[in-house]
Simulated scan of single mutants.
Amino acid sequence: MKKFLITAIIMMMMIVGYAQSSFYKVGDTIFYVNNRATYVKTSTLVVLKETNVGKNSNVFKVEKFLLDDSKNEYVLDSKFTTNGLQLLKANGDFVSYYKNGNKASEGKTVNGHKGKGIWSYYYENGKKKSEEKTSNESYFSDKTENLVMNFWDEKGQQTVIDGNGFAQFTNSEGLFEKGTYKNGLKNGLWTAFDGKVKKYEETYKKGKLSNGKSWNSAGDSFTYKEVNTSAYYRKKDNGAVRKYVDKNFNSNTAGIAGDIYVNFLVTQEGFVGQVNIIRGLTVDYNTEVKRVLSEMNGWTPAKKRGQPYNSTYSLNLRFTE
Rank of each mutant, 00 (worst) to 15 (best):
R242P: 01
G92D: 05
G112D: 10
K247T: 06
N72F: 11
D284Y: 00
F4D: 11
Y233K: 03
D93N: 12
K186I: 00
K128A: 11
M296N: 13
F166R: 05
N72C: 05
T267W: 09
E295R: 12
L87M: 08
K133C: 08
T253K: 11
V59W: 04
T44K: 07
A218V: 14
Q158C: 13
K213Y: 00
Y74P: 00
A302C: 00
K71Y: 07
T267V: 14
A37N: 02
G179Q: 01
L315K: 11
R279G: 15
V148H: 04
G219W: 08
G101N: 03
K178A: 14
N56I: 15
G179T: 03
Y123F: 15
A104V: 00
F140T: 07
E177F: 02
V46K: 05
W190N: 01
V46P: 03
T44V: 14
G107N: 00
Y32V: 03
K236V: 10
R291V: 08
S210L: 15
F140G: 04
V40Q: 12
M14S: 15
Y122R: 11
V33C: 01
N228W: 14
T7E: 06
F193S: 02
N228M: 10
Y123N: 10
K196E: 06
L281N: 09
V266Y: 04
R279M: 14
K114W: 14
M11G: 12
I161A: 11
F319V: 01
V59D: 02
K64F: 04
K186R: 12
E321P: 07
A218W: 07
N250G: 06
F169M: 04
N125G: 09
D69M: 12
F176R: 04
D162H: 13
P308C: 12
G184H: 01
N238T: 04
N102Q: 00
P301A: 00
Y244M: 07
Y224T: 10
E226N: 14
K236E: 15
L67T: 03
F169W: 12
N183T: 09
Y121E: 15
Y121R: 13
N102S: 08
S221M: 01
N150M: 03
Y244G: 02
G126D: 04
E288G: 04
Y123E: 12
N102V: 02
F176E: 09
M12G: 07
D246A: 11
F193Q: 06
G212Q: 00
N34W: 06
N72Q: 12
W152K: 09
Y285A: 11
K199E: 06
G195T: 11
D237T: 07
N286T: 07
G195D: 07
I15P: 02
A231S: 15
F60M: 02
N211Y: 15
G207R: 02
K213P: 00
Y139I: 13
Q268T: 11
T300L: 07
E124Y: 00
Y200F: 03
I118M: 02
D153V: 09
K64R: 14
E145H: 06
Q168Y: 14
V110L: 05
G306S: 07
G117M: 14
Y97F: 13
L45A: 06
L293N: 05
V283H: 14
